[in-house]
Amino acid sequence: MELILALGIGVLTGSGVWLLLRPRTFQVIIGLSLLSYAVNLFIFSTGGLRTGAAPVLEKGMAGDLALHADPVPQALVLTAIVIGFATTALFLVLLLAARGLTGTDHVDGKEQER
């Protein structure tokens, strides 16, 4: 499972960075989204991967991180998702405004001279 997760994060990050460096605003926003997925998975993985563990506490047992999944990264990832979603939406609006004002979807607001 570690391998799959690591590969997933790696592929998402790689494609995200590549897209982020492209000249079209749409590619940039997709790149940002992919990167934020990768980061969210990464945060999630810092709590340690474990299957079948109790979410927070098991009934009648003392709390011990060896027994249950670490809840903090889960809380962090939720916050990160919400914030990432909001900022990406804001970027989308800006992207449309830039398209409308400059008449091009190039990130610099003008086409490159060839």
Binding site: L20, V39, I43, A80, A97, A98, T102, V107
Partner: peptide, 19 residues
């Protein structure tokens, strides 16, 4: 808008690095 686009994109990346 043009400067803002760059500003927002760079800061979104910075936020991801922060995370």
């Amino acid at each position: 808008v043009r400067a803002g686009l760059h500003y927002v994109a760079i800061n979104l990346v910075a936020s991801l690095l922060f995370l």
